[in-house]
Design a protein around this nucleic acid. Structure first.
Lengths: 231, 231
DNA sequence: ACCTGAACACCGTTCAAGT
DNA sequence: ACCTGAACACCGTTCAAGT
């Protein structure tokens, strides 16, 4: 006599154990594949062979799940060792670039950081590392505090820009004005209405992402070193 | 004999004429009141006394509508006159602060700019003005081009931070760790795991938004003036 | 050309009921 | 304690049908 339950289960991939970790894993996979809109409670549940209601045992709600996804990605960043002799500036640049590259690899994850300051354990670890490195820079304590905020802002912004998928022009050829890519926009901008853009259209879009980013990070660090904060 | 239609209509506020402009107006009002999630096609339609399907005559879809809302807000920024004698730096600082303040007044609008670079007419006007002012700064054409990108990134990031409503702690007292405000997080961070944060918790959260923003803008401008870009 | 009702294919979240 | 089915109250978008 066949045991329907066990047998049919043996035929499909082992049902993953339900846990906060597995839920976050699945949510991140959906995020990478289909972006933020692809992460729905129902789809996550389906991939875990259960119903959406079951997720609420491990996660407060969708926003909570997204925060957990963000912190999981933040955990991918390799933090610098706390060695007093290191070149703080080089290490900080590496840390920032590393963080941006990781956000760039995970579609839409950077967006999660904007709109509510991430405070998961891994995000705190990142902040802690930035404070450590800046504390060796010689700038004031106040400058260090404010600089951390500014650098975090930049990391998430740059991560978002980098993680933007190059949108395929839809099947219908007449992409509307809003969907053109930046280069085309600047190149064809009305000379009368936007003369300065038109004149600088080449420079506005030149350089690789990496080149632009390297420059921006240097701008931030040079600016931080050169600007005393006042209360 | 009562004319039901006209009479009942005379009793309620005049039905606003349907147009792209009126739709964008209503969407922005909903945005200000209830944030991004409050802007649904159905709610916009309802406020205009019609059904959601009718909106699609004037707007391609919800994303398109949101882009229009962003550009409408971008139009609130007062652009500097093109006078060759002006103090470019002072004017640029004013422009940036003005833009941030306007974004700060419209909940969630800044989020719309991240994830797809705004290219509506008013956003282009803003970019054009920034290029104009920077072209008087003496930095290279390339630095001007990249600086515009960096400043735009900062404006939207700062706008988002500023437009974040201070979330009321929910009725149930036990706000979970993620919902605590930043000050509390940094102040109570584990000394073992995040010693640098704990040591600097005061500075990380000190100063008013305006003070921090003023410093950040100076950091950006000082950095831009001091850093030569390389291709 | 503009507008509509109704439908389609989804959502997040709750909750009583089960184990 | 964990899990579930079913329901509630919504979504964006399409489309045939009307004017």
């Amino acid at each position: 006599m066949p045991q329907i339950g066990p047998v049919s289960r043996r035929n499909r991939p082992a049902k993953p154990a339900l846990s906060q970790e597995s839920i976050v894993d699945v949510a991140l996979a959906l995020m990478d594949a289909d972006g933020l809109d692809g992460v729905t409670m129902r789809r996550v549940a389906q991939k875990l062979d259960t119903g959406p209601a079951s997720l609420y045992v491990y996660v407060q709600n969708r926003d909570d799940l997204l925060r957990l996804v963000f912190d999981r990605v933040a955990g991918e960043v390799v933090l610098p060792a706390d060695e007093p002799d290191g070149d703080w500036r080089e290490q900080l640049v590496t840390l920032i670039e590393d963080a941006i590259n990781i956000l760039a690899r995970h579609q839409d994850v950077a967006t999660l950081a904007l709109g509510d300051i991430p405070t998961g354990p891994n995000a705190l670890g990142l902040t802690n590392a930035m404070v450590m490195l800046l504390s060796k820079s010689g700038v004031s304590r106040l400058a260090t505090g404010w600089a951390v905020d500014l650098l975090a802002l930049y990391i998430t912004s740059a991560g978002m820009e980098a993680a933007m998928p190059v949108r395929q022009p839809t099947t219908d050829e007449t992409a509307n004005a809003f969907q053109l890519n930046t280069r085309e926009i600047f190149g064809t901008a009305s000379v009368e209405r936007y003369p300065y853009i038109r004149d600088l259209s080449e420079e506005l879009t030149s350089g690789t992402d990496a080149q632009r980013r390297r420059w921006m990070i240097q701008v931030l660090l040079n600016g931080i070193l050169a600007t005393a904060p006042e209360l």
